[in-house]
Computed example of a mutant assay.
Amino acid sequence: MNLFADALDGALVVHVGEDRLDAAVAIHFKDQMREITAQPAPRVILELSQVAFLDSSGLGAIVAVMKALAPRKLELAGLTPNVRKVFHLTRMDTVFTIHAAAIGEGIRNAG
């Protein structure tokens, strides 16, 4: 699972560098997110612009991360059309704050 994090304006931005978030990687995703989000930040933004496919296991993993982060918020950014459709069909788009634009890799690429 290819995840990396950047700090941006007081938020922890976690970039998912995979094209699929599905049953094959869901457990690894949750484990890595637990490690990455141990850093104190009031907001965590999950940047999903590289994820082209999300199944129910991937969605469940994202929801599990959201619950584990409470009371901190998990926000989403850069949803591809297929991923956005999954959130809409499951009405999870009413649960998460979803930012339309992707969040760049500025800090990672600057170093």
Results as ranks from 00 to 15, higher is better:
residue 1 M to V: 13
residue 3 L to V: 03
residue 3 L to D: 04
residue 3 L to T: 03
residue 5 A to D: 12
residue 5 A to G: 03
residue 6 D to K: 12
residue 6 D to M: 13
residue 6 D to N: 15
residue 7 A to N: 10
residue 10 G to W: 09
residue 11 A to Y: 00
residue 14 V to T: 02
residue 15 H to Y: 07
residue 15 H to L: 03
residue 16 V to T: 02
residue 16 V to P: 01
residue 17 G to S: 09
residue 18 E to N: 04
residue 19 D to F: 00
residue 19 D to N: 04
residue 19 D to W: 02
residue 20 R to Y: 05
residue 21 L to M: 05
residue 22 D to L: 05
residue 22 D to M: 07
residue 23 A to M: 10
residue 24 A to W: 08
residue 24 A to G: 13
residue 24 A to Y: 07
residue 25 V to C: 13
residue 26 A to P: 00
residue 26 A to F: 01
residue 27 I to T: 15
residue 28 H to V: 08
residue 28 H to C: 05
residue 30 K to S: 14
residue 32 Q to M: 13
residue 32 Q to N: 14
residue 33 M to R: 10
residue 33 M to C: 10
residue 34 R to A: 15
residue 34 R to V: 14
residue 35 E to V: 14
residue 36 I to D: 06
residue 37 T to D: 07
residue 37 T to C: 14
residue 39 Q to D: 07
residue 40 P to Y: 13
residue 41 A to V: 09
residue 41 A to E: 06
residue 42 P to N: 09
residue 42 P to L: 10
residue 44 V to C: 12
residue 44 V to M: 12
residue 45 I to H: 04
residue 45 I to K: 09
residue 47 E to I: 02
residue 48 L to R: 07
residue 48 L to K: 05
residue 49 S to G: 01
residue 50 Q to A: 12
residue 51 V to P: 03
residue 54 L to D: 05
residue 55 D to I: 01
residue 55 D to H: 00
residue 55 D to P: 00
residue 56 S to K: 03
residue 58 G to A: 05
residue 59 L to D: 01
residue 59 L to N: 02
residue 60 G to K: 11
residue 60 G to V: 04
residue 61 A to F: 04
residue 62 I to F: 06
residue 63 V to K: 05
residue 63 V to F: 10
residue 65 V to M: 08
residue 67 K to F: 04
residue 69 L to P: 01
residue 69 L to D: 06
residue 70 A to N: 09
residue 70 A to T: 13
residue 72 R to P: 01
residue 73 K to S: 11
residue 74 L to R: 07
residue 74 L to K: 11
residue 76 L to C: 05
residue 77 A to S: 15
residue 79 L to F: 11
residue 82 N to Y: 08
residue 82 N to H: 12
residue 83 V to P: 00
residue 85 K to F: 08
residue 86 V to R: 03
residue 86 V to G: 01
residue 88 H to V: 15
residue 89 L to E: 03
residue 89 L to P: 00
residue 91 R to Q: 14
residue 91 R to H: 13
residue 91 R to V: 07
residue 92 M to I: 03
residue 92 M to Q: 09
residue 93 D to S: 08
residue 94 T to M: 11
residue 95 V to S: 09
residue 95 V to R: 08
residue 96 F to D: 05
residue 98 I to C: 06
residue 98 I to F: 07
residue 99 H to F: 13
residue 99 H to S: 07
residue 99 H to D: 09
residue 100 A to K: 12
residue 101 A to R: 14
residue 101 A to H: 15
residue 102 A to L: 10
residue 103 I to W: 03
residue 104 G to S: 10
residue 104 G to N: 11
residue 104 G to I: 04
residue 105 E to T: 15
residue 106 G to I: 08
residue 108 R to F: 14
residue 108 R to E: 12
residue 109 N to R: 14
residue 109 N to D: 14
residue 110 A to M: 09
residue 110 A to Y: 09
